[in-house]
């Protein structure tokens, strides 16, 4: 692996007095999909919130292209190119689909926005049919498409996805994973959090296993898929 694009080292984070991250370290390299798996409450969402600047780390470093982003505001971090599609989709329910997508490109001023807009609509044709509708009127699957589409509108240099397939029908899960692979092929590195650990490890190059705020295992995705402990704990096998 070449020099990592995004690199976390020894990150600790708290909610009040509750420690949620305990010295977490991970890297995302050029052009790779990295899966972060772990049980409910392990700290996956907290990891992404900390990277995005929504939560300030108490200790540790977070570097993007070798430059520290700790202490930057969340909106500044977006401008640096780290874009997140958060857990629970968090689309704006009372804005139209079009407004939601435009907000994705809020921080941008370049001329490639129109091209990205067309690309999002070709990845998710359903959004194109519903541009005038309020986000809150979309089905769960469509809202997920909107959340990912909105993140792509930001022209991410690194994409963080928090449980993008949660609660979707199997067909929609496949659609979403195809899009993830497609976006990655265009060169965008992705840090992927998934309930569906098997699918995540199948699409990822490498993976990390998170338990109570710290990484307990990491390696090539194929190795983790074959690992006995991982199979038992996260892939539902005995």
């Amino acid at each position: 692996m070449s020099a990592p694009i995004l690199s976390l080292s020894g990150v600790e984070a708290y909610y009040g007095r509750i420690q949620a991250l305990r010295g977490l370290s991970l890297d995302v390299g050029e052009g790779e999909i990295v899966a972060l798996i772990g049980a409910n409450g392990a700290g996956k969402t907290t990891t992404l919130r900390t990277i995005s600047g929504l939560l300030a780390p108490a200790r540790g470093s977070i570097n993007l292209f070798g430059e520290s982003i700790v202490g930057m505001r969340a909106d500044q971090i977006v401008r640096k190119g780290i874009v997140q599609s958060p857990e629970g989709r968090r689309i704006f329910p009372r804005l139209t689909v079009l407004e939601n997508l435009r907000l994705g490109a809020y921080a941008r001023t370049d001329r490639a926005i129109a091209g990205d807009f067309d690309r999002v609509l070709s990845l998710f044709p359903r959004l194109g049919e519903r541009l005038k509708q309020k986000g809150g009127t979309l089905s769960g699957g469509e809202q997920q498409m909107l959340a990912i589409g909105r993140a792509l509108m930001a022209g991410p240099k690194v994409l963080l996805l928090d449980e993008p397939s949660l609660g979707l029908s199997p067909i929609l899960v496949d659609t979403i994973f195809n899009v993830i692979a497609d976006v990655n092929r265009s060169g965008v590195p992705i840090l992927l959090i998934e309930q569906n650990a098997r699918k995540a490890l199948q699409v990822a190059a490498r993976g990390y296993v998170l338990e109570t705020g710290t990484i307990v295992k990491s390696g090539p995705a194929a190795t983790l898929l074959a690992d006995d402990d991982v199979r038992k704990a996260y892939l539902g096998e005995d």
């Binding site: 995005s52 600047g53 704006f92």
Partner: peptide, 10 residues
């Protein structure tokens, strides 16, 4: 509507 999500839009 959603302060955190708004921040994530930049």
């Amino acid at each position: 509507q959603d302060r955190d999500a708004a921040q994530l839009m930049g």
